[in-house]
Design a protein around this nucleic acid. Structure first.
Length: 638
RNA sequence: GCCAGCGUAGCUCAGCAGGCAGAGCAACUGAUUUGUAAUCAGUGGGUCGGGGGUUCGAUUCCCUUCGCUGGCUCCA
């Protein structure tokens, strides 16, 4: 009788079984786990492994299901692997690079004599389906790195060689299925046949190792699921999300336009968009004044000399617009900080005055590279809800935490979930190491004291200081920076800012650049997608529309309209000689929250019938009751 | 900026192995006075993104340029 070990499924009692021939698969079978078809991999003592992994000692096991987060990742990783195999079969000479699972799918980057195009995808899909049909097992092996290098060199795969050389490990793991071997940490599905449903979605260019000085590779994106139903649901969701695109809704709801003949990246706000923007800006000013900020307004053009002094000319010039007037060079502001610093330095400051918080809805211009423009979300002109806080170094942490509170409160009003990222010193930057360390520490400690989860982005800070970024997602789950809190010890130094301390000596203030919404344009873009254009009452450009049944009701409708306007509501009227269903349809497509129907019945009883945007009808109410209702809803900001 | 795809009426899109440019919606005119997502009839509307080339002839093929879309890089 051979050696026995004790294995158990997490949360259940162990059994004792012979170790001879024991692996993840046989162990789970012995533990009578059902639905083995749906298992992608196995956790052995919490570590995800391939299902056929040998088990040599007692262990706690946990099956990883295909439709779990981990299972899907494995499935997609395997699908990427199969795609690479298909591409190599169909396009000999293709060099493979990397192909990970990502949020929502997978991709693989290839180097081929030409870029792959969308029309190549059906053929690749067909070959992938064949490989999946063959149900080839994924076979894991571990070999010395030197052998792997020789192998990939013989296969004509220089990118793999480079990867292994950079890993500088003694051994690497390979996975083989059929004729295709890939460098891969794993784990993979037991076999290709387990990939239930997949689709290749789009192609794109991508630089090798994300470096724009390196080769441009050809990337193919795809999605994969355990079954067709999940894939169909996913594709349907995507389609729905695309309908929420702020560029589409911006046109449909007549909010804004961006025109080639005016200039790319420049937004024209139409009346509906302009009022929406105005509401948010007004709201922001109030919220800032409440929190001890002071309003400031700086000029659009500042002398280039000043941009040289601040460091922007050296570090940000390629993004700035310049103009020469009467032999004097000016730069259009890409940031709002300079004027605020000049306000601070306009007189002697005492420690008793600190912190000073200057707030400006500051419009900036940045020459963004043409390929990055994206509707409102990435424009060349935008307005920031910008503030600069000058404080003593020991006030820094409190100020940062106040801002984190501010962000939390505002995001809660709009119903946004957000993620935090902290960025540290980049290569191209100004200031001393000591200052950078101090500032970075202040940011990290502030976030940690709040127990907020965050991610560190090494070397991604602004040129003048480290920052906390608040990331929001658009309809397609792309992440965008909105709020940001940036420490800066450099600019107070460069502008020789000071305050007189209790000791009567001059001291250098610390400085925070911060925005809450970020760019009003970007925030609006994400907000439009967030609400799918159906804005809550307090934001809706048109809050109510009055719909008459016949011409007899027009005078009554006008009275109601005037009453609502007098109560400060944004109201429109539709008195056209059309059927009610026609007017309802149009109002519905404009996503107007309140449709107010007035016909003969309403005139008789002095009332109005409410149809809500969700299709519900409310019993008739008087105009007084209506106003009370919408005032309440508007104040609740829901 | 880089890679790929795409630019046809206000919008959404057909068309084109090179031979007089189309539909639906919108707009306008008229009729209809209507009760919760489209009343009917008629009318006007285009340098087929710009420039160049090939051709008897280019919206269609080629080059170039601008813009857009998806990624990459960069960033609010």
């Amino acid at each position: 009788m051979g050696k026995k070990v004790r294995v158990n499924v997490k949360g259940s009692p162990p059994i004792e079984i012979p170790v001879q021939g024991l692996n993840g698969l046989t162990a789970l079978k012995a533990l009578s786990i059902d639905n083995m078809e749906n298992i992608a991999a196995i956790k052995i003592n919490g570590e995800i492994k391939d299902l056929p992994t040998k088990i040599n000692s007692s262990a706690e096991l946990e099956p990883v299901c295909m439709d779990s987060q981990d299972g899907l990742e494995i499935l997609r990783h395997s699908a990427a692997h199969v795609m690479a195999q298909a591409v190599r079969d169909l396009f000999p000479g293709t060099k493979v690079t990397i192909g990970p699972a990502i949020k929502g799918g997978f991709y693989y980057d290839f180097d081929y004599e030409r870029a792959f195009e969308a029309k190549d995808l059906p053929e690749i899909e067909k070959r992938m389906a064949e490989i999946i049909e063959e149900d080839l097992p994924f076979i894991r092996s571990e070999i010395p790195s030197s052998e792997a290098i020789d192998f990939f060199r013989s296969q004509g795969e220089p990118y793999k060689v480079e990867l292994i050389e950079d890993l500088s490990e003694q051994k690497v793991t390979l996975y083989r299925d059929g004729n295709f071997t890939d460098l891969c940490r794993g784990p993979h599905l037991p076999s290709t046949g387990k990939i239930g449903a997949f689709q290749l979605t789009h192609v794109a260019g991508a630089y090798w190792r994300g470096d724009e000085h390196k080769a441009m590779l050809s990337r193919i994106y795809g999605v994969a699921f355990a079954d067709q139903k999940s894939l169909d649901a996913h594709l349907k969701n995507l389609e729905e999300a695309r309908k929420r695109d702020h560029r589409v809704l911006g046109r449909k709801l007549d909010l804004f336009s961006i025109r080639e003949d005016l200039g790319p990246g420049m937004v024209i706000f139409h009346p509906n968009g302009a009022i929406l923007r105005h509401i948010i800006e007004e709201f922001e000013i109030k919220e800032h004044l409440k929190r001890g900020y002071e309003l400031a307004v700086g000029p659009q053009l500042l002398k280039t000399e000043l941009w040289k002094k601040s460091g922007h000319f050296d570090h940000y010039r390629e993004n700035m617009y310049f103009t020469d007037i009467e032999d004097q060079s000016y730069g259009i502001k890409p940031m709002n900080c300079l004027a605020h610093m000049l306000i601070y330095s306009s007189k002697v400051r005492s420690y008793r005055d600190l912190p000073k918080r200057y707030f400006e809805l500051g419009t900036v211009h940045r020459h963004e590279r043409s390929g990055v423009l994206h509707g409102l979300i990435r424009a060349r002109q935008f307005t920031q809800d910008d503030a600069h806080i000058l404080c003593s170094p020991d006030q820094l942490k409190t100020e940062i935490q106040n801002i984190l509170d501010f962000v939390g409160e505002i995001m809660a009003i709009f119903g946004f979930h957000y993620d935090l990222e902290i960025s540290t010193r980049p290569k191209k930057s100004i200031g001393t190491d000591e200052d950078w360390q101090k500032a970075t520490k202040a940011l990290i400690e502030s976030v940690e004291e709040y127990n907020l989860p965050y991610q560190i982005n090494q070397g991604e800070g602004a040129f003048y200081g480290p920052k906390i970024d608040v990331m929001l997602e658009d309809a397609l789950e792309r992440s965008w920076q909105c709020a940001t809190i940036q420490c800066d010890f450099a600019l107070p130094e460069r502008f020789d800012l000071s305050y007189v301390g209790p000791d009567g000596e001059k001291h250098r203030p610390a400085m925070i650049h911060r925005v809450i919404l970020g760019s009003i344009e970007r925030f609006l873009g994400i907000l439009i997608e967030h609400y799918a254009g159906a804005f809550p009452l307090w934001l809706a450009p048109v809050q109510a529309i009055i719909l008459t049944i016949t011409d007899r009701n027009i005078a009554y409708g006008k009275d109601l309209s005037e009453a609502l306007s007098a109560a400060d509501f944004r109201v429109e009227t539709d008195f056209r000689n059309e059927k009610l269903s026609f007017k309802v349809r149009e109002a519905q497509m404009k996503k107007i929250p309140y449709m107010l129907v007035v016909g003969d019945k309403e005139m008789e009883t002095g009332s109005v019938t409410i149809r809500l945007r969700d299709g519900h009808n409310l019993p008739p109410v008087s105009s007084k009751e209506l106003i009370a209702r919408i005032r309440d809803e508007s104040q609740k900001r829901r």
